[in-house]
């Protein structure tokens, strides 16, 4: 039986880059608990001998030839950007280097 705490939800929210209020986190914790309890039933039949299906059709080896196609004009690429400078996407300062 899953029992999910607000701290766990807060951790998930950080992973997912969602700045949620405490009240929202509490509400989500309660909802997730109900949903997860319900969906956890999959484990009842998912025995080790069953292969997983990640894709509905058994296709393999779909390729593209290594041939250049026209790119977007930079104006098009940048048209929807909230902030642009020097033909680049301008982003707020990055604190933590990867």
């Amino acid at each position: 039986m899953p029992s999910i705490t607000r701290d766990e939800v807060a951790h998930l929210a950080r992973l997912a880059r969602l700045d949620l209020t405490d009240e929202h986190l509490d509400r989500l914790a309660a909802e997730l608990d109900v949903i997860l309890t319900s969906v956890a039933t999959v484990a009842e039949v998912a025995t080790a001998d069953i292969p997983p299906t990640s894709h509905p059709l058994p296709l393999t080896n779909v390729f593209r030839e290594d041939v250049v196609h026209p790119s977007l004009a930079p104006e098009q690429a940048l048209a929807a950007a909230p902030a642009v400078e020097d033909q680049r996407f301008r982003v707020p300062r990055i604190l933590d280097e990867e």
Binding site: V39, V45, A46, I50, P51, P52, T53, P56
Partner: peptide, 15 residues
């Protein structure tokens, strides 16, 4: 494994 992995196995069963 418990969640996503199991769900994919159920997918196999449903197919």
């Amino acid at each position: 494994d418990a969640y996503y992995g199991s769900a994919q196995k159920v997918r196999t069963l449903i197919t």
